[in-house]
Amino acid sequence: MFRKLLVPMDFSAAALEACRIATELAQSGGATLWLLKIIEPSQETLNLEPMMALGAQQMFHDLDEQLLDANHTRLDALAQTLRDQGIPVETTVARGHPQDLVCRLAEDQGVDLIVMGSRGLGAFKQLFLGSVSNYVLQHASCPVLITRAPGSEPLN
Rank of each mutant, 00 (worst) to 15 (best):
A77K: 02
V144M: 07
L35H: 05
V115K: 03
P8K: 06
K37C: 15
D84G: 12
E17N: 02
R148I: 09
Q126R: 15
Q80N: 14
E49C: 13
I114F: 02
A77S: 09
A70W: 03
H61K: 10
I87D: 07
A14M: 02
Q58S: 14
H139I: 09
L75Q: 06
G117W: 00
I114G: 01
Q99H: 13
D64C: 12
I21Q: 11
V132A: 04
R20M: 07
E17W: 01
L16W: 07
L101G: 09
Q85E: 10
L145Y: 04
L54Q: 15
V115Y: 04
C19Y: 05
L155M: 11
T45P: 10
C142N: 07
M52A: 15
E65M: 11
T23K: 07
M9E: 01
Y135H: 14
T81A: 13
D69N: 10
L78P: 15
R3K: 08
D112I: 06
E107I: 03
Q43N: 15
A53M: 09
A14C: 03
G110A: 06
N47E: 10
P50D: 05
I114E: 02
L46W: 08
L82W: 00
V102S: 04
Q126P: 04
L101C: 04
V89S: 06
L113N: 03
F124N: 06
L137G: 12
A56I: 15
M52E: 10
E49S: 13
E40P: 05
T81V: 12
A70Y: 05
S131D: 04
A31S: 09
T45R: 14
P150R: 04
E107N: 07
N134M: 14
E24H: 08
Q138Y: 01
I87Y: 03
I39D: 02
E153M: 12
S152K: 05
W34N: 01
L78V: 14
T92G: 07
L36D: 04
V115F: 02
E90F: 10
Q43H: 13
M59L: 15
H139N: 10
C103A: 09
D62G: 12
H139A: 10
D76C: 08
I146G: 11
V93Y: 03
